[in-house]
Protein backbone atom coordinates (compact mmCIF):
# COMPACT_ATOMS: atom_id res chain seq x y z
CA UNK A 1 0.00 0.00 0.00
CA UNK A 2 0.98 3.65 0.30
CA UNK A 3 3.40 3.13 3.14
CA UNK A 4 6.26 0.76 2.55
CA UNK A 5 5.86 -2.89 3.32
CA UNK A 6 7.95 -2.61 6.45
CA UNK A 7 5.64 -0.03 7.96
CA UNK A 8 6.30 3.68 8.03
CA UNK A 9 7.47 3.71 11.62
CA UNK A 10 9.70 0.67 11.62
CA UNK A 11 11.57 2.01 8.58
CA UNK A 12 14.32 3.42 10.76
CA UNK A 13 15.02 0.21 12.60
CA UNK A 14 17.86 -1.95 11.27
CA UNK A 15 18.01 -5.45 12.68
CA UNK A 16 21.29 -6.47 14.23
CA UNK A 17 22.97 -8.26 17.08
CA UNK A 18 25.46 -5.65 18.26
CA UNK A 19 25.86 -5.02 22.01
CA UNK A 20 23.82 -1.85 21.52
CA UNK A 21 20.99 -3.79 19.88
CA UNK A 22 20.91 -6.20 22.78
CA UNK A 23 20.62 -3.55 25.52
CA UNK A 24 17.20 -3.32 27.19
CA UNK A 25 15.14 -0.52 25.59
CA UNK A 26 14.59 1.30 28.88
CA UNK A 27 18.37 1.46 29.41
CA UNK A 28 18.84 2.98 25.98
CA UNK A 29 16.02 5.49 26.49
CA UNK A 30 17.49 6.69 29.78
CA UNK A 31 20.97 6.82 28.27
CA UNK A 32 19.90 8.95 25.30
CA UNK A 33 17.87 11.30 27.47
CA UNK A 34 20.71 11.71 29.98
CA UNK A 35 23.21 12.25 27.17
CA UNK A 36 21.01 14.93 25.62
CA UNK A 37 20.65 16.64 29.01
CA UNK A 38 24.43 16.74 29.50
CA UNK A 39 24.89 18.13 25.99
CA UNK A 40 22.28 20.81 26.54
CA UNK A 41 23.73 21.71 29.95
CA UNK A 42 27.07 22.70 28.41
CA UNK A 43 27.57 26.49 28.84
CA UNK A 44 27.30 28.25 25.48
CA UNK A 45 29.88 30.98 25.98
CA UNK A 46 32.61 28.99 27.74
CA UNK A 47 35.88 28.90 25.84
CA UNK A 48 36.21 25.14 26.26
CA UNK A 49 32.73 24.41 24.86
CA UNK A 50 33.98 23.42 21.35
CA UNK A 51 36.31 20.87 22.95
CA UNK A 52 33.42 19.47 24.96
CA UNK A 53 31.31 19.15 21.80
CA UNK A 54 34.15 17.27 20.15
CA UNK A 55 34.30 14.93 23.15
CA UNK A 56 30.53 14.30 23.01
CA UNK A 57 30.74 13.70 19.28
CA UNK A 58 33.54 11.20 19.73
CA UNK A 59 31.48 9.39 22.39
CA UNK A 60 28.31 9.11 20.29
CA UNK A 61 30.26 8.12 17.16
CA UNK A 62 31.96 5.37 19.16
CA UNK A 63 28.54 4.02 20.20
CA UNK A 64 27.34 4.25 16.58
CA UNK A 65 30.41 2.29 15.47
CA UNK A 66 29.81 -0.39 18.10
CA UNK A 67 26.18 -0.58 16.93
CA UNK A 68 27.37 -0.79 13.30
CA UNK A 69 25.15 2.09 12.25
CA UNK A 70 26.26 3.13 8.80
CA UNK A 71 27.61 6.72 8.49
CA UNK A 72 25.23 7.37 5.58
CA UNK A 73 22.28 6.63 7.82
CA UNK A 74 23.58 8.99 10.49
CA UNK A 75 24.00 11.74 7.90
CA UNK A 76 20.54 11.21 6.47
CA UNK A 77 18.99 11.42 9.91
CA UNK A 78 20.37 14.94 10.27
CA UNK A 79 17.79 16.13 7.73
CA UNK A 80 15.25 16.66 10.54
CA UNK A 81 17.62 19.31 11.82
CA UNK A 82 17.31 21.65 8.85
CA UNK A 83 14.96 24.16 10.56
CA UNK A 84 17.52 24.52 13.36
CA UNK A 85 20.29 25.02 10.84
CA UNK A 86 18.40 27.87 9.19
CA UNK A 87 17.80 29.49 12.54
CA UNK A 88 21.43 28.99 13.62
CA UNK A 89 22.70 30.54 10.37
CA UNK A 90 20.51 33.59 10.91
CA UNK A 91 21.67 34.23 14.47
CA UNK A 92 25.11 35.77 13.68
CA UNK A 93 23.41 38.31 11.41
CA UNK A 94 20.62 39.40 13.72
CA UNK A 95 22.26 39.29 17.17
CA UNK A 96 23.62 42.59 18.52
CA UNK A 97 26.91 43.15 20.34
CA UNK A 98 30.61 43.08 19.35
CA UNK A 99 31.12 42.08 15.75
CA UNK A 100 33.81 40.21 13.85
CA UNK A 101 34.69 40.18 10.17
CA UNK A 102 34.37 36.82 8.47
CA UNK A 103 34.88 36.67 4.69
CA UNK A 104 33.94 40.30 4.47
CA UNK A 105 30.68 39.86 6.41
CA UNK A 106 30.17 41.62 9.70
CA UNK A 107 28.88 39.03 12.14
CA UNK A 108 27.92 39.18 15.79
CA UNK A 109 30.41 37.40 18.01
CA UNK A 110 27.86 36.13 20.51
CA UNK A 111 25.50 35.27 17.63
CA UNK A 112 28.19 33.05 16.16
CA UNK A 113 28.69 31.36 19.49
CA UNK A 114 24.98 30.87 20.13
CA UNK A 115 24.30 29.68 16.61
CA UNK A 116 27.22 27.29 16.69
CA UNK A 117 26.19 25.93 20.07
CA UNK A 118 22.60 25.46 18.90
CA UNK A 119 23.78 23.58 15.86
CA UNK A 120 26.23 21.43 17.82
CA UNK A 121 23.71 20.53 20.52
CA UNK A 122 20.96 19.68 18.05
CA UNK A 123 23.32 17.58 15.94
CA UNK A 124 24.64 15.62 18.89
CA UNK A 125 21.16 14.92 20.26
CA UNK A 126 19.85 13.86 16.86
CA UNK A 127 22.82 11.51 16.42
CA UNK A 128 22.14 9.85 19.77
CA UNK A 129 18.41 9.54 18.98
CA UNK A 130 19.27 8.04 15.59
CA UNK A 131 21.43 5.37 17.17
CA UNK A 132 18.50 4.59 19.49
CA UNK A 133 15.96 4.40 16.63
CA UNK A 134 18.27 2.33 14.46
CA UNK A 135 18.98 -0.26 17.14
CA UNK A 136 15.56 -0.51 18.81
CA UNK A 137 12.29 -1.77 17.37
CA UNK A 138 9.33 0.61 17.87
CA UNK A 139 7.47 -1.86 20.04
CA UNK A 140 10.57 -2.48 22.16
CA UNK A 141 10.70 1.29 22.71
CA UNK A 142 7.11 1.09 23.93
CA UNK A 143 8.02 -1.67 26.34
CA UNK A 144 10.89 0.47 27.56
CA UNK A 145 8.61 3.45 28.13
CA UNK A 146 6.22 1.17 30.00
CA UNK A 147 9.02 -0.10 32.26
CA UNK A 148 10.00 3.50 32.90
CA UNK A 149 6.47 4.04 34.25
CA UNK A 150 5.24 6.37 31.54
CA UNK A 151 1.44 6.59 32.12
CA UNK A 152 -0.22 3.52 30.61
CA UNK A 153 -2.67 5.61 28.59
CA UNK A 154 0.18 7.37 26.78
CA UNK A 155 1.97 4.10 26.03
CA UNK A 156 -1.27 2.62 24.68
CA UNK A 157 -1.85 5.63 22.43
CA UNK A 158 1.69 5.32 21.06
CA UNK A 159 1.15 1.59 20.54
CA UNK A 160 -2.03 2.15 18.57
CA UNK A 161 -0.26 4.75 16.51
CA UNK A 162 2.41 2.21 15.55
CA UNK A 163 -0.20 -0.42 14.77
CA UNK A 164 -2.55 1.78 12.76
CA UNK A 165 -0.30 4.26 10.99
CA UNK A 166 -0.14 1.89 8.00
CA UNK A 167 -3.87 1.17 8.05
CA UNK A 168 -4.69 4.87 8.05
CA UNK A 169 -2.09 5.75 5.43
CA UNK A 170 -3.45 2.88 3.31
CA UNK A 171 -6.88 4.45 3.59
CA UNK A 172 -5.47 7.85 2.68
CA UNK A 173 -3.76 6.34 -0.32
CA UNK A 174 -6.96 4.64 -1.55
CA UNK A 175 -8.87 7.90 -1.16
CA UNK A 176 -6.22 9.67 -3.23
CA UNK A 177 -6.35 7.00 -5.93
CA UNK A 178 -10.14 7.23 -5.98
CA UNK A 179 -9.95 11.03 -6.32
CA UNK A 180 -7.37 10.98 -9.06
CA UNK A 181 -9.20 8.21 -10.90
CA UNK A 182 -11.96 10.74 -11.42
CA UNK A 183 -9.59 13.30 -12.88
CA UNK A 184 -9.04 15.29 -9.73
CA UNK A 185 -6.18 17.77 -9.96
CA UNK A 186 -4.81 19.03 -6.67
CA UNK A 187 -3.48 22.22 -8.24
CA UNK A 188 -6.79 23.45 -9.58
CA UNK A 189 -8.89 26.12 -7.86
CA UNK A 190 -11.31 24.62 -5.33
CA UNK A 191 -9.04 21.67 -4.72
CA UNK A 192 -8.53 22.70 -1.12
CA UNK A 193 -12.23 22.28 -0.42
CA UNK A 194 -12.09 18.74 -1.71
CA UNK A 195 -8.97 17.96 0.29
CA UNK A 196 -10.58 19.41 3.40
CA UNK A 197 -13.57 17.15 2.94
CA UNK A 198 -11.24 14.19 2.44
CA UNK A 199 -9.40 15.01 5.65
CA UNK A 200 -12.73 15.16 7.46
CA UNK A 201 -13.81 11.83 5.99
CA UNK A 202 -10.52 10.26 7.05
CA UNK A 203 -10.96 11.62 10.55
CA UNK A 204 -14.48 10.18 10.83
CA UNK A 205 -13.38 6.83 9.44
CA UNK A 206 -10.50 6.66 11.90
CA UNK A 207 -12.79 7.66 14.74
CA UNK A 208 -15.24 4.92 13.82
CA UNK A 209 -12.42 2.44 13.55
CA UNK A 210 -11.35 3.48 17.03
CA UNK A 211 -14.83 2.65 18.28
CA UNK A 212 -14.77 -0.77 16.58
CA UNK A 213 -11.32 -1.55 17.95
CA UNK A 214 -12.55 -0.62 21.41
CA UNK A 215 -15.51 -2.99 20.99
CA UNK A 216 -13.18 -5.78 19.94
CA UNK A 217 -10.98 -5.06 22.96
CA UNK A 218 -13.92 -5.11 25.37
CA UNK A 219 -15.04 -8.39 23.84
CA UNK A 220 -11.76 -9.93 24.87
CA UNK A 221 -11.89 -8.76 28.44
CA UNK A 222 -10.11 -5.38 28.19
CA UNK A 223 -10.46 -3.53 31.48
CA UNK A 224 -8.42 -0.37 31.07
CA UNK A 225 -4.86 -1.57 30.82
CA UNK A 226 -3.04 -3.60 28.21
CA UNK A 227 -1.66 -6.76 29.72
CA UNK A 228 2.11 -6.84 29.34
CA UNK A 229 4.24 -9.86 28.73
CA UNK A 230 6.81 -11.25 31.13
CA UNK A 231 9.15 -8.52 32.38
CA UNK A 232 12.74 -9.46 33.02
CA UNK A 233 14.71 -7.26 35.41
CA UNK A 234 17.73 -5.52 33.88
CA UNK A 235 21.01 -6.58 35.56
CA UNK A 236 23.13 -3.71 36.96
CA UNK A 237 25.91 -4.57 34.52
CA UNK A 238 23.61 -3.80 31.59
CA UNK A 239 22.64 -0.47 33.13
CA UNK A 240 26.32 0.33 33.60
CA UNK A 241 27.10 -0.54 29.98
CA UNK A 242 24.14 1.45 28.66
CA UNK A 243 24.83 4.49 30.79
CA UNK A 244 28.46 4.61 29.72
CA UNK A 245 27.54 7.13 26.99
CA UNK A 246 25.99 9.79 29.26
CA UNK A 247 28.66 9.08 31.90
CA UNK A 248 31.47 9.80 29.46
CA UNK A 249 29.64 12.93 28.35
CA UNK A 250 29.21 13.91 31.99
CA UNK A 251 32.91 13.46 32.66
CA UNK A 252 33.72 15.67 29.66
CA UNK A 253 31.35 18.34 30.98
CA UNK A 254 32.73 18.14 34.51
CA UNK A 255 36.32 18.35 33.28
CA UNK A 256 35.49 21.42 31.24
CA UNK A 257 33.79 23.09 34.19
CA UNK A 258 36.66 22.36 36.58
CA UNK A 259 39.54 23.24 34.28
CA UNK A 260 37.92 25.89 32.06
Amino acid sequence: MGAGHGGALSARYVAGTSPVHRLAPQVKLVAVLAYALVVVATPVHAGWAPWAYAGYLLAVLTVAAVARVRPARLLRSLVVEIPFVVFALLLPFVTRGPRVEVLGLSLSESGLQTGGALLAKATLSVLAATVLATTTEPRALLRGLERLRLPAALVQILGFMIRYVDVVSGELHRMRVARESRAFDGRRRGALRVLGAAAGALFIRSYERGERVHLAMLSRGYSGRLPGGPAAAVPPREWAAGLALPLVAGVVLATGMLLG
Binding site: R139, L142, I162, R163, Y164, R209, V213, A216, G221, P227
Partner: peptide
Protein backbone atom coordinates in the same frame (compact mmCIF):
# COMPACT_ATOMS: atom_id res chain seq x y z
CA UNK B 1 -9.40 -8.09 11.06
CA UNK B 2 -7.72 -4.70 11.34
CA UNK B 3 -10.21 -3.89 14.09
CA UNK B 4 -9.55 -7.17 15.82
CA UNK B 5 -5.77 -7.16 15.63
CA UNK B 6 -4.62 -4.09 17.52
CA UNK B 7 -1.41 -5.29 19.17
CA UNK B 8 2.00 -4.83 17.49
CA UNK B 9 2.55 -8.55 16.88
CA UNK B 10 0.36 -11.56 16.19
CA UNK B 11 1.60 -13.35 19.32
CA UNK B 12 0.83 -10.44 21.62
CA UNK B 13 -2.59 -10.12 20.08
CA UNK B 14 -3.45 -13.78 20.59
CA UNK B 15 -2.15 -13.42 24.17
CA UNK B 16 -4.31 -10.35 24.83
CA UNK B 17 -7.44 -12.28 25.88
Amino acid sequence: PDDQLFMPTVGEDVAFG
